[in-house]
Design a protein around this nucleic acid. Structure first.
Lengths: 331, 331
DNA sequence: CTTCACTCTGTGCACGTTCACAGAACCTTC
DNA sequence: GAAGGTTCTGTGAACGTGCACAGAGTGAAG
């Protein structure tokens, strides 16, 4: 059984293709009589517009691509993805745009994705976790507008973005430690080629100034294991630490394990602060004092930027949203 | 500047449209000379096939829809999503299929998504977390083939699926408790309209038989708070519990908090078993003994089933994959 | 009655591809 | 050299839509 076309609807309603098309696309010149006849015909025939045919003539695809740039070997469990994807689907659906997912893990992927985008198969691009100095963003040109979740380091002026204020978050946690009277405050950072890695450390340094010596700073890679390793290292280097700011909750869970193994009590001996306010933050013992990122809002703003560009906006400014200190029991 | 079409490639290579099309679609009758000329022309012009035009004539879209059926108000943080999506993108990309995401949260969504699918905008459908007795699966007909991650309760014969063997997992954990000499074994289940809720309990009952009295069973809704609540309830009802099997790691984290509040030591007084082997399982104190689900394999098999159906397979059998006991410190 | 503006409708064309078909070129066999 | 198969190529039609254009109908103003 063949799928009904706009011709079938027109025939059933006793009008021409053109009139049906006008109704579908919101043209104002459609008589009330024609309108009701067509609407009835549409629901009777179960007609659905053929997007391929439409896109062939309009030169638009009705879809936006979200590009995940994680390397394959990285077992990535960021619950942020879930929120981000949901928000994007929802906002795009309101504009009758659909969300297509692609991965740019290795060189082959990147080439494929870039071709796809340059080939005009999408009306817009949402970049996720693109790394510093990634030539991928250039490979996308010439193509449709692109925006990023979080800054693409080194391309801040090129790719518009929305992000949480990581630096502010770093300051908030560090100030809280200082206000509590902590004296030897250490930090475990994320990878230094990511915005979260760099800027949370900047916030830390903003508050401590010269007291933020390299002896008090260790680096992790967002995983729990790396948090545990970094904490152990810090304790060996500087045993009299009385507070540690960890750049992610997952790494903070690792740090808690290392502290427990070393016989330190949290928060009595050492205060621990996390970052993200993820589900891990409430499952640890003690529950983590952490920094909440406005995840849904960041996702919303990112999509909003993209829609503005798709609508012909020439230039949009980055959006930076404030973080918030969430006090639980670890500090 | 206009995008190059198949005509431009043909002209540049000195052949006709048809020959270029044949090369693109892997037809065997293309002379070596034509082949190299066309390949050069393609890379010189930067030609990318226009999928809309192709799909118009082939009646295929080159895309598969993944439908997320979570209600909107549910803050869902399942890290499984991430794995599942990645696996799907990857396997589909190999076949030059792209993955489109849609949400079917409320009635309006469902209607939209069903129309989209019945309208022929996808070559296949991947269903996620569709609830028991959901009429949505019927609303998809007539349409392209559909498969589900996990059984759709009440539609097992209608929608093919791949799943972890939840019942086996329930047995494994319960048998482990029995082997350890635990005498009063309780269970906190998931919602009883989900496969994981029902079947993990079945496994529990398989092993304990008549000893699995309702006094020893409480229900949660997968959230950590519900796990804490259920544990508190169980302790009031039956204070001499010496083991508890919790149907998810997140709920188990809640149960640990309740046990700690009640002054019970884990695992000395009460052994705790989780389910999922998620990131939460290693961030709790003590780390959770749990049941590992072969997430990536389930995702792979689900997509494989769909591809078989897309290729014209008439009927495919459900795939059930074994779970595995992971021993840590909580039991 | 004529003119003009405004509302509404139908028609031809173009978008870029695949597919079926016809036929050319070449090789093998009688 | 004719006949027949195999390999390769070009061409016209079709897929379903939006858009520009021409033109029909209506009502108000002169």
């Amino acid at each position: 059984m063949k799928r009904p076309t706009i011709h079938d609807v027109a025939a059933a309603a006793g009008v021409s293709r053109g009139t049906v098309s006008r109704l579908l696309n919101g043209d104002k010149y459609v008589s009330p009589a024609a309108r009701v006849a067509i609407e009835r015909a549409i629901s009777e025939t179960g007609y659905v517009v053929n997007r391929a045919a439409r896109s062939l003539v309009t030169q638009r695809t009705g879809s936006v691509v979200m590009v995940l740039s994680e390397p394959h070997d990285k077992v990535f469990e960021d619950p942020n993805y879930s929120t981000t994807i949901r928000v994007a689907i929802r906002m795009l659906a309101e504009r009758d745009l659909s969300l297509v997912m692609m991965m740019a893990g290795d060189e082959g992927d990147r080439e494929r994705v870039a071709r796809y985008i340059r080939g005009g198969h999408a009306d817009g691009v949402l970049l996720m976790s693109t790394h510093a100095g990634d030539p991928f963003v250039e490979a996308l040109q010439p193509g449709p507008p692109a925006v990023s979740y979080g800054a693409v380091i080194g391309r801040e002026g090129v790719i518009p973005y929305a992000a949480a204020d990581d630096r502010l978050g770093g300051r908030q946690m560090t100030e809280y430690f200082v206000a509590q009277g902590r004296r030897r405050i250490a930090m475990i950072t994320g990878p230094m080629d990511t915005p979260g890695g760099i800027q949370r450390l900047e916030g830390f340094a903003d508050v401590l100034g010269r007291k933020a010596s390299t002896k008090l700073i260790a680096h992790g890679d967002w995983t729990q294991a790396s948090g545990e390793r970094a904490m152990t290292e810090l304790l060996e280097r500087t045993p009299d630490i009385d507070a540690v700011f960890v750049a992610s909750d997952l790494m903070a869970a690792g740090a808690l394990a290392a502290l427990r193994a070393a016989g330190r009590r949290v928060p009595d001996d050492v205060a621990v602060g996390g970052f993200d306010d993820s589900s891990v933050a409430v499952s640890t013992h003690p529950p983590l004092t952490t920094i909440r990122q406005p995840l849904a809002e960041v996702a919303q703003e990112t999509v909003r930027l993209l829609l503005a560009l798709i609508d012909g906006g020439k230039h949009v400014d980055p959006v930076i949203l404030p973080t918030e200190l969430v006090i639980r029991e670890s500090a």
